[in-house]
């Protein structure tokens, strides 16, 4: 039965749009999530190679360190800062040699002084 108020609003329709709409948004992103969660596995199957993953577990027998090795936030920030500073400050690394280069101009009668309008004709 339609839940229509005196003002003519069909609330059942509103609730359906809301419910279905929100569910569809959720499902769309859930599906995308599911696909990309399994994407490395899928790529492994297709290419036969392992997708390179930065999060490497360093085995205990390698160096005796039991913890997983990650790039921490501080290290990432430090690397980012260092790169930014390096690229920003690049312009400061100049040769320091200041010279006035001679500019060689080829002769052209169009710019010649001897044809100037101010020459006094004798």
């Amino acid at each position: 039965m339609e839940e229509t108020t005196t003002t003519g609003i069909d609330w059942s329709q509103i609730w359906i749009i809301t419910g279905v709409g929100y569910t569809v948004v959720f499902l769309a992103l859930l599906l995308l999530m599911f696909l990309f969660k399994n994407m490395p596995l899928f790529l492994n199957l297709v290419t036969g190679k392992k997708v390179k993953v930065m999060i490497k577990k360093i085995k205990p027998e390698d160096n005796g360190n039991q913890e997983e090795q990650y790039l921490s936030g501080e290290i990432s920030a430090a690397i980012g800062m260092a790169l930014t500073l390096y690229f920003k400050e690049q312009h400061d690394e100049e040769s320091g040699v200041i010279t006035i280069k001679r500019v060689a101009r080829t002769y052209s009668p169009w710019s010649s002084k001897i044809y100037g309008v101010n020459n006094n004709l004798r």
Binding site: T18, G21, Y22, F26, L30, M33, F36, K37
Partner: peptide, 18 residues
């Protein structure tokens, strides 16, 4: 990819406003 769900959850604002 699981963080995608947070983007979906925040869309409650759209349907709430509706």
């Amino acid at each position: 990819p699981r963080l995608m769900l947070l983007g979906a959850a925040a869309q409650v604002g759209v349907f709430g406003t509706f």
